[in-house]
Amino acid sequence: MRVTTETDRCVAAGVCVVAAPAVFDQDDEEGLVVVLDADPGEEQRRAVEDAAARCPARVIHVSGAS
Protein backbone atom coordinates (compact mmCIF):
# COMPACT_ATOMS: atom_id res chain seq x y z
CA MET A 1 0.00 0.00 0.00
CA ARG A 2 1.25 3.48 -0.84
CA VAL A 3 0.00 6.64 0.88
CA THR A 4 0.28 10.09 -0.70
CA THR A 5 -1.19 13.45 0.25
CA GLU A 6 -1.79 16.83 -1.30
CA THR A 7 -0.36 19.04 1.45
CA ASP A 8 -1.17 22.23 -0.45
CA ARG A 9 -4.91 21.42 -0.18
CA CYS A 10 -4.84 20.24 3.47
CA VAL A 11 -7.17 22.15 5.84
CA ALA A 12 -5.41 20.95 9.03
CA ALA A 13 -8.47 19.22 10.49
CA GLY A 14 -6.32 16.51 12.08
CA VAL A 15 -8.71 13.62 11.56
CA CYS A 16 -5.95 11.68 9.80
CA VAL A 17 -3.80 11.76 12.94
CA VAL A 18 -6.69 10.56 15.08
CA ALA A 19 -7.56 7.74 12.66
CA ALA A 20 -4.01 6.56 11.86
CA PRO A 21 -1.41 8.03 14.25
CA ALA A 22 1.27 5.57 13.12
CA VAL A 23 0.99 6.88 9.56
CA PHE A 24 0.08 10.58 9.87
CA ASP A 25 1.11 13.60 11.91
CA GLN A 26 0.67 17.36 11.59
CA ASP A 27 3.44 19.90 11.17
CA ASP A 28 4.08 22.30 14.04
CA GLU A 29 3.70 25.49 12.02
CA GLU A 30 0.37 25.17 10.22
CA GLY A 31 -0.98 21.81 11.33
CA LEU A 32 -0.77 20.41 7.81
CA VAL A 33 -0.65 16.68 7.20
CA VAL A 34 2.73 14.93 7.39
CA VAL A 35 3.08 11.34 6.21
CA LEU A 36 5.19 9.41 8.70
CA ASP A 37 5.05 6.14 6.76
CA ALA A 38 4.32 6.29 3.02
CA ASP A 39 4.44 2.48 2.74
CA PRO A 40 2.62 1.20 5.83
CA GLY A 41 1.98 -2.50 6.31
CA GLU A 42 -1.37 -4.08 5.57
CA GLU A 43 -2.19 -4.00 9.29
CA GLN A 44 -2.59 -0.23 8.87
CA ARG A 45 -4.90 -0.42 5.83
CA ARG A 46 -8.19 -0.04 7.69
CA ALA A 47 -6.91 2.96 9.68
CA VAL A 48 -5.43 4.65 6.59
CA GLU A 49 -8.57 4.12 4.52
CA ASP A 50 -10.63 5.49 7.42
CA ALA A 51 -8.37 8.56 7.55
CA ALA A 52 -8.78 9.07 3.79
CA ALA A 53 -12.56 8.73 4.01
CA ARG A 54 -12.84 11.17 6.93
CA CYS A 55 -10.50 13.82 5.50
CA PRO A 56 -12.70 16.87 4.81
CA ALA A 57 -10.38 18.09 2.03
CA ARG A 58 -9.98 14.61 0.46
CA VAL A 59 -6.20 15.00 0.21
CA ILE A 60 -5.20 11.47 1.30
CA HIS A 61 -4.74 8.91 -1.45
CA VAL A 62 -4.20 5.18 -0.97
CA SER A 63 -2.94 2.95 -3.77
CA GLY A 64 -1.75 -0.61 -4.00
CA ALA A 65 -3.28 -4.03 -3.64
CA SER A 66 -5.37 -4.92 -0.66
Rank of each mutant, 00 (worst) to 15 (best):
P40W: 05
E29A: 12
V34A: 00
E49R: 02
D25C: 09
R45G: 07
D25L: 06
S66A: 14
E29L: 15
V62R: 04
D28N: 12
V33R: 05
L36H: 02
A19I: 12
V33N: 01
R54H: 15
T5D: 03
G14N: 10
E29F: 12
A13K: 12
R2W: 04
C55H: 05
D50F: 14
P40E: 00
G14K: 07
P21L: 10
P40C: 04
F24K: 02
D8C: 09
A65W: 15
V33C: 04
R46C: 12
V11Y: 06
A22F: 10
A38Y: 12
E43S: 14
R9D: 03
M1T: 00
A53W: 05
A13L: 12
V11M: 10
E6N: 14
S63R: 03
V3R: 03
V17N: 07
M1A: 02
A19N: 08
A65R: 08
A20F: 14
V11G: 08
A20P: 07
P21D: 06
G41M: 02
D50M: 15
A12K: 06
C16I: 04
P56V: 07
A65P: 06
G31P: 11
E42M: 03
E30Y: 11
V15H: 01
D27N: 05
E6H: 13
V11F: 08
L36D: 00
A38D: 14
R45A: 12
D28M: 13
A47G: 01
R54Y: 15
D50R: 12
P56C: 05
D28I: 13
E42P: 05
V35T: 06
A12C: 15
A13E: 10
V18E: 14
I60C: 01
E6A: 13
V11N: 11
V59C: 08
C55T: 09
G14T: 07
V48L: 09
T7A: 10
C10T: 05
A22I: 11
T5P: 08
D39M: 07
Q44N: 01
D25G: 00
E43K: 07
S63P: 13
T7Y: 15
V59Q: 02
I60T: 01
A13W: 13
Q44H: 06
G41I: 05
I60D: 00
L36M: 04
I60Y: 02
A13C: 15
A51H: 10
S66W: 13
A12S: 14
A22K: 04
V18M: 13
A22G: 03
H61M: 14
E6W: 08
E49S: 05
A38I: 09
F24D: 00
A47Y: 03
C16L: 01
F24I: 05
L32V: 06
P56M: 06
R58G: 14
A52G: 01
V18C: 08
C55I: 11
V59A: 04
T5H: 11
E6L: 09
V23G: 00
R2L: 08
V3G: 01
H61Q: 10
I60A: 03
C16V: 04
C55G: 04
D50Y: 13
V3W: 00
R54W: 14
D25N: 01
L32I: 02
V35M: 02
V11T: 15
H61R: 10
C55V: 13
C16P: 04
V48F: 07
P40I: 03
